[in-house]
């Protein structure tokens, strides 16, 4: 593992995340359109807000990327004038941190759909903890709270985890990820032909 992130890593992470920042911004109104249906259906699409960390990590595969990505995406969303205002920044930090912890626990060596879903789940848990303080969600009726937690976690895994995973798969097909991934020993060996 190289020491820290290179400029290329940082810049690529931030730019990907800003693309997602724009998506996040557009996601806000959608979320609030779904919300009035009640029974916490909106929570199913909440997971989109964790996807930047997952995608950036799968592309760059280095420590710190997940956290940086989520911060960058939320500050992009924030500076675009998000209707959630400042809270997106702080949520971004928390969500990024929770995803990062999972990748760290796997020593940054696993990039499969399971670990990624787990990271997404972790982000979801992080956001719920924050909601506990901010949204008094502990004061919701129990059945309602359970729906909320359940839907949010399922949504996280499906959208951010599985969705992010397949998005990166599609990107890999275009060859673009080779740009930022280190060259392998095989590539070097091929020089001796």
């Amino acid at each position: 593992m190289s020491r820290g992130l290179k400029l290329t890593d940082v810049l690529v992470t931030i730019v990907i995340s800003i693309v997602f920042g724009i998506v996040y911004k557009l996601w806000g109104p959608l979320y609030y359109l779904v919300k009035p249906f009640g029974i916490q259906l909106d929570q199913l699409i909440y997971g989109m807000w964790f996807i930047a960390a997952i995608v950036a990590f799968l592309i760059i595969r280095k420590p710190g990327v997940a956290l940086l990505a989520e911060i960058a995406a939320s500050s992009g969303e924030f500076l675009l004038g998000s209707e959630f205002g400042l809270e997106v920044l702080l949520y971004g930090v928390v969500q990024g941190l929770f995803a990062e912890i999972v990748f760290m626990a796997a020593r940054y060596k696993r990039f499969d759909v399971a670990i990624v879903s787990f990271a997404a789940l972790s982000s979801g848990v992080g956001s719920l903890i924050f909601d506990y303080y901010k949204g008094y969600i502990g004061d919701l009726a129990v059945w309602n709270l359970s729906l909320m937690v359940g839907f949010r976690l399922i949504g996280s895994i499906l959208i951010a985890g599985v969705g992010g995973y397949y998005l990166v798969k599609a990107l890999e097909a275009t060859g673009v990820t080779n740009l930022v991934r280190p060259t392998t020993k095989q590539d070097y060996d091929a020089l001796d032909q």
Binding site: L7, T183, D187, Y188
Partner: peptide, 10 residues
């Protein structure tokens, strides 16, 4: 190459 653009060189 190779400091900013990673391409195998020798």
């Amino acid at each position: 190459i190779p400091s900013s653009i990673e391409v195998p060189v020798k």
